[in-house]
Amino acid sequence: MGQLSGPTDPSADARWEDHPPRKGFFTDTSICIGCKACEVACKEWNHNPQDGNLELLKSSYDNTGALGASTWRHVAFVEQGQERVVQARESGRALVSLGMPAIGPPAPAADQDLSEVDTTPPDTPDFRWLMSSDVCKHCTHAGCLDVCPTGALFRTEFGTVVVQDDVCNGCGTCVAGCPFGVIERRSDGTVAVAAQREEPHAQPPAVPNVGIAQKCTLCYDRLIADETPACAKACPTTSIKFGDHDHMVETARARVAELHAQGLTEARLYGANELDGVGGTGSVFLLLDEPEVYGLPPDPRVPTADLPRMYRRAGMAVAGMVAAAALAFLRGRA
């Protein structure tokens, strides 16, 4: 029986034999140019439909809003003044000196105590524009997977979490199971089209997989042929990196250390701590501010982590009830 919390190798935990190393993303938001190539490359590869109603979302240059059934990569845009930059720099520095970020790593490198060093860069910008490409976290302990009653969601040999469209019955249990709000059922009729068209080349393709749960597959259908996921392949600046999860975490830690050494102490990791509420994530991020700023939960927790304890309690309750019933029966007999 597999684990429901704590550090583990999720593929082995799901009983894959001779599986390849766990795969994952490292999204380094410090070099993201907000071009959204990842969003388009993802939709194009997965044939996900356009969503939204073609209006400005009132959120800087972000017009897709959030991850959802049809948007599996999403770029957030956050505009900030100097005060916030100073705060982020302070909070990032504190994370390092405490050694325990909320969900980040206990590092960069424990031997580097940068908290005492004056690493204020020559000029703190009076303004900044954060961009960050979000994606499914492919948690070590995935709530969506653990609550799925049909076996539609499964853990792949690469340690990722994937919905099988042909198995999913659209019950939606997984939607509540995800602590990041990533997985969603696809609704129909999302596609707005132009008012009138002369002789369309072709009918717009029917929206696939309506009503069933949809999310990033980490391009499972590319990984099996040893190809890079579409978003990481397209990313012009390598802000999205793809590779073995251990290597990604290592790279991410080194990058945070590098930025801290430059005085950019606002840098911190997200998802790289295997002791967190989801056992660490397959997709790790380098952020330049608190997770909430990017719309990410600061302390996500997989709901099924508590299952064993709940089952134990429920088991005791059931035993008690059985005992009580038995007692009542015996008394009745008596």
Binding site: D13, A14, R15, L145, L153
Partner: peptide, 9 residues
């Protein structure tokens, strides 16, 4: 794979 999360499904 008793929880039904891997190759069995």
């Amino acid at each position: 794979d008793l929880l039904g999360r891997g190759p069995s499904v």
